[in-house]
């Protein structure tokens, strides 16, 4: 028989390293004479999309097209140390360093522009710098860049962002462990085949507080990928170890979800701004997967009334629990 169930999982996640571990981000912004932009940062994009988000932040602050920005990252000789890509900290920490560095360069350029245009209410947008009250008073970003160079002003700025917290008390664990937290809840709908223990995850609805979605599609992409990983964690993935020896050493024996195992994933983005994050943004990378397994486990319990307490909820484990329950029910009746 196939039985359906619904379940929810929630989580909170301390962004960054927390409890006194060094937690820094850095970026250097340099404006070329023609107004094109070079940004250097030691931060790593291994696919999650931080390079794009950095370009968006710089573009926002300088009022230029994000495609104008050349980003050089993760090279210990040419970029400033921005800490690792982990702990869902990259947008929150190095994103903020990007914002600070761009702001610093822009403020130097603003001084030059104020002098040239004789106006104070300047805005940087669409590759232009113009007076908000008298838009006809304007200069292109490229010409302003040239002017700033000629004026002998600095067109380079390096910014540092440090969110290192204090450690918690060693005896009580009390203290401000993290700079900020991400929050999320997900609902899963499953169908359990009670005759085989096979589970289909039919739907996942995810709601994540990311502070501010700098690139909403990228946030969705993080959530969708996280859910798939969480699904594998809940149902099937397991390194089998016998007396210290890994037994499953191929991808046919260690099975991650395929395209036919992952359901439609619906994402909802919540934005409760984080004070220290750029535009209020904080991380989503890890929070994306954390609620999935619990939501699935709770949905299984809702569907068939058994609670999996030892992961994964694979065919054998679930089938055994269902049979134990049937036997218990028989004993009672």
């Amino acid at each position: 028989m196939k039985k359906r169930g619904i379940g929810i999982g929630s989580m909170f996640y301390g962004i960054g390293y927390g409890f006194s571990r060094q937690d820094i981000g850095a970026a250097t912004v340099e404006i070329c004479e023609d107004g094109s932009v070079i940004v250097r940062s030691g931060e790593v994009d291994y696919g999650q999309g931080s390079d794009t988000i950095f370009c968006q932040i710089i573009a926002e602050e300088l009022g230029v097209d994000y495609a104008e920005i050349k980003l050089i990252t993760a090279d210990t000789l040419t970029t400033p140390n921005a800490g690792p890509t982990s702990a869902s900290r990259v947008t929150y920490v190095t994103g903020k360093a990007m914002m600070k560095a761009a702001t610093e360069v822009r403020e130097t350029m603003r001084e030059v522009a104020e002098e040239k245009l004789g106006m104070q209410d300047l805005m940087f947008a669409n590759g232009q710098v113009f007076s908000m009250s008298h838009p006809e008073k304007n200069i292109s970003f490229a010409r302003l860049a040239k002017a700033t160079h000629l004026a002998g002003r600095s067109v380079v700025a390096t910014a540092w962002q440090d969110i290192t917290t204090k450690d918690v008390d060693p005896e009580t664990g009390q203290g401000d462990a993290y700079s900020t937290y991400a929050w999320a809840s997900q609902i899963a709908v499953v169908e359990v085949d009670t005759e085989t223990g096979k589970i289909e995850v039919l739907r996942v609805v995810a709601a994540h507080d990311v502070g501010k979605a700098i690139n909403p599609k990228n946030v969705e992409a993080q959530i969708e990928g996280g859910v798939a990983t969480g699904l594998g964690y809940a149902l099937e993935e397991q390194i089998l170890i016998n007396k210290g020896i890994v037994q499953n050493t191929t991808l046919s024996e260690y099975m991650v979800p395929t395209s036919m195992d992952v359901p439609v994933i619906e994402s909802h983005i919540v934005e409760v701004p984080a004070l220290e994050g750029p535009y209020g943004a904080k991380g989503v990378g890890e929070p994306a997967l954390i609620p999935t397994a619990p939501a699935i486990l709770n949905a299984i319990a809702n569907a068939v009334g058994v609670r999996v307490t030892a992961l994964p909820a694979n065919l054998e484990n679930l089938h055994r629990l269902i049979r134990e329950q049937e036997n218990n029910n028989k004993d009672k009746s």
């Binding site: 085989t196 046919s252 099975m255 979800p257 395929t258 036919m260 195992d261 694979n314 065919l315």
Partner: peptide, 11 residues
């Protein structure tokens, strides 16, 4: 019956 819906050996 496989452990996943594709690329699975028959259980």
């Amino acid at each position: 019956l496989g452990r996943r819906n594709a690329m699975a050996k028959a259980r």
